[in-house]
């Protein structure tokens, strides 16, 4: 019981709040900013859970790369003020009800079941340092890394094919 304990719950609360904000914002840029906050608080939690390397990657790659990619697209597609108006038109409260109920029920079922667990396991925050992660990653999971490479290659080729056409045809216009 200490600071980290408290920190966990605060971060969790922040993550949840900002996640909700992120999915409900009308302005795409705002939403992305909220998402970044979510990611940051998750990074904090990672750190608390004893995974500093994951926390770093969360910030570097997720917040740093993926969200930025999103932002590029948002800007490229020019989702400005008009899109905000459109979003408010699309986001009718009536539409929220069923999804909300479904999510709620899922959560209740999940929660009820998990809470039935007796002698629950505690996370002591044992730190697994990056070095150890690296060792295992490039030893036991070496082939996994290779496969991740192929995965990225596939994504690269795919994104190239899909995106290139766009560029070329714009040039033609």
């Amino acid at each position: 019981m200490g600071l980290s304990f408290l920190l966990f719950y605060i971060s969790a609360a922040v993550a949840i709040t900002t996640a909700i904000m992120a999915v409900t914002r009308k302005n795409a840029s705002h939403a992305l900013i909220y998402l970044v906050v979510t990611l940051l608080s998750i990074a904090v939690i990672f750190f608390l859970l004893g995974a500093p390397f994951a926390a770093a990657l969360e910030i570097v790659i997720y917040a740093g790369a993926i969200v930025v990619l999103f932002l590029f697209v948002v800007m490229m597609l020019n989702l400005g003020r008009s899109s905000v108006a459109r979003e408010s038109q699309w986001l009718r409260p009536g539409m929220w009800v069923l999804p909300a109920i479904l999510s709620g029920v899922l959560f209740i079922v999940f929660g009820y079941t998990v809470l039935q667990t007796e002698n629950s396991a505690m996370i002591e925050g044992q730190v697994v340092p990056p070095k150890e992660v690296g060792t295992v990653l490039f030893h036991e999971y070496l082939l996994g890394v290779e496969l991740a490479g192929v995965l990225l290659l596939a994504a690269l080729v795919g994104a190239f094919h899909l995106g290139r056409r766009y560029l070329e045809e714009r040039r033609e216009n």
Binding site: L98, P99, L102, S103, V105, L106, V109, F110, T113
Partner: peptide, 17 residues
């Protein structure tokens, strides 16, 4: 996506309960 999530709920119920 909604039906998928509904399906998830059903499977969860089936497996757990």
């Amino acid at each position: 996506a909604f039906t998928m999530l509904g399906g998830l709920l059903l499977v969860l119920l089936a497996v757990v309960w």
